[in-house]
């Protein structure tokens, strides 16, 4: 029970983080979105044996985390949730390919950086502002709506779950968790309740003028600092893409043989 309650607090954590004030938070969502997107493109553009060249890319999420003062532990926890999946995908490589461990390592690094970058983006921008950035970039309404409503739906689901778990556990205090016999009806009921509540929330949105598009949050156009941020980082990515910094650095430090 306690676990679920804290999961609920955790799930909303990113909304809370997104409301913090920092230099990164105050950047225009479009700038952050484009930079993150460029980051991901550059990441996947590397070949599967180019591991060393990936290392400078750690700088971007690291910079964001430090500058935005994001807490490391919750970020790490979320990363742990997806990490087994990534391992599952990558682990077959060493079996079939003599240089497979390299590929494995490269998949691990790329996927981890991708997840961290996405978490950082949501944690410094918030889903609603991201949605308005997506609109500005002319992403189809339908797609953005799908994304934001799915995001909201998860909260509704967890909230209903908490309410039901509480009611259940108060009247079944001798047992831990939900008995197998009650499990089916419990899940069924949960889905029905969630649907019902989602429906009513949707009514409430409709009554306040919602017509399938999240309202603009009144963000102004890009400012100089947004451009500096985006262009600066994209420039850095370009340099890292075409020069092998770690190798150059090695040469410098080790001297040219």
């Amino acid at each position: 029970m306690q676990k679920i309650l804290s999961a609920m607090d955790n799930i909303r954590l990113f909304d809370d983080l997104a409301r913090k004030k920092s230099a990164i938070h105050s950047l225009h969502p479009v700038a952050k979105l484009i930079t993150t997107f460029a980051f991901l493109l550059f990441l996947v553009s590397f070949g599967r044996y180019e591991i060393i060249k990936l290392l400078p890319f750690v700088a971007f999420p690291l910079f964001m985390i430090i500058k935005a003062d994001l807490p490391l532990i919750p970020l790490g926890q979320r990363l742990l949730v997806v990490e087994p999946l990534i391992v599952g995908v990558g682990i077959l490589n060493p079996l079939f390919d003599p240089a497979g461990w390299l590929t494995f390592a490269s998949i691990m690094i790329k996927a981890t950086l991708t997840v961290v970058a996405a978490l950082v983006l949501v944690g410094t921008t918030g889903m609603d502002r991201l949605a308005s950035a997506l609109y500005k970039l002319k992403v189809p309404d339908m797609f953005v709506l799908q994304l934001t409503l799915t995001y909201r739906y998860i909260f509704v689901l967890v909230e209903e779950l908490v309410v039901m778990m509480r009611a259940y556990s108060l009247r079944s205090y001798t047992q831990k968790g939900i008995s197998f016999k009650d499990g089916g009806p419990f899940v069924g009921q949960l889905l029905l309740r969630t649907l019902d509540r989602a429906q009513r929330v949707h009514y409430a949105m409709g009554l306040r003028g919602f017509q399938g598009r999240y309202p603009d949050d009144g963000q102004t156009s890009l400012k100089a600092k947004d451009l500096v941020f985006a262009l600066g980082w994209i420039g850095f990515f370009l340099l890292c893409r075409f020069y092998n910094w770690p190798a150059l650095l090695g040469l410098l430090l080790g001297g040219i043989q």
Partner: peptide, 9 residues
């Protein structure tokens, strides 16, 4: 009221 409030703040 839970039906009416759905955003983050």
């Amino acid at each position: 009221s839970d039906d009416q409030l759905f955003t983050t703040s």
